[in-house]
Simulated assay, not measured.
Amino acid sequence: MGILLLMARERVPRVMRGEIPMASIAVERDAYPLKARLLSNNFDNQFQLPVLFYVGALLAILFQPGWPEVVLAWLFVATRYVHAYIHVTHNRVGKRFMAYAAGLAVLALFWLWLILRLLILAPSI
């Protein structure tokens, strides 16, 4: 929601003042300044890995999460905040990729643990 609000603050006033004609943003976002495009790209990015996280988190909640799921979930959330911060500030691609890769690794561990717990360890837990 924070990224969405920042994006609105960057985009809406420019359109309302007539700086950016509606026709120039009807299909592409290129008419927006760099900051607005970065926020928009980051907002779009929040519908990639996080969707896998949401499904896993709901599954974990359904089966009462243990401490490994909780720790991995918070680590994933932290990596997303770091990624978003890098994306909408200095946008150094190398650092942004490292934050993304860290989030992906944590998410993979989250899912591996969840699958292990539910399919293999479930009878013994």
Rank of each mutant, 00 (worst) to 15 (best):
G56A: 07
A36F: 03
G18Q: 03
F76Q: 02
Q48L: 13
L34T: 08
A105H: 04
L112S: 11
V93S: 07
L107Y: 04
G56L: 04
P65L: 10
E28K: 14
M7P: 00
M16A: 13
L58M: 13
P50L: 09
L112Q: 01
A8E: 10
L34F: 06
L75R: 01
A26K: 09
V15N: 02
G56R: 05
V12H: 11
V51L: 15
A26P: 01
H87F: 14
V93W: 03
A57T: 11
V82M: 05
P68I: 07
T89R: 03
T79R: 05
Q46G: 10
R17E: 14
L62K: 14
V106H: 02
L116S: 12
E19T: 05
A99H: 06
I20A: 11
M7V: 01
N42F: 09
V77E: 00
L104F: 15
R80S: 03
M7E: 10
S24L: 08
V82A: 15
E10H: 07
A105Q: 04
V51W: 12
T89E: 01
M22Y: 10
T89P: 02
V70N: 02
Q64H: 12
E69I: 01
L52D: 02
P65C: 02
L107E: 03
P123T: 01
L104Y: 13
I125N: 12
I25L: 07
I120T: 10
M1Y: 12
L118G: 01
P21Y: 00
A8I: 13
T79S: 15
N42S: 11
W67V: 14
I125L: 15
T79W: 09
I125E: 12
G56P: 07
R14V: 01
L39W: 06
V12W: 14
I125V: 15
I25Y: 05
L39I: 10
L121Q: 10
F110I: 03
L49P: 05
Q46P: 01
A108S: 14
I61D: 03
R37M: 10
E28N: 12
A101V: 06
P68Y: 04
A122H: 14
I125A: 13
E69T: 04
L49A: 15
I125W: 15
V88Q: 00
L38C: 11
L118I: 05
A78S: 12
A60E: 05
M16N: 01
N91C: 02
Y85M: 05
L62T: 11
I3Q: 06
A122K: 14
D44V: 08
A99V: 02
A73E: 02
L58Y: 09
M98C: 02
L38P: 06
I120H: 13
R17A: 14
H83F: 13
V77F: 11
R29P: 01
V82Y: 08
L6C: 06
D30F: 05
I61L: 15
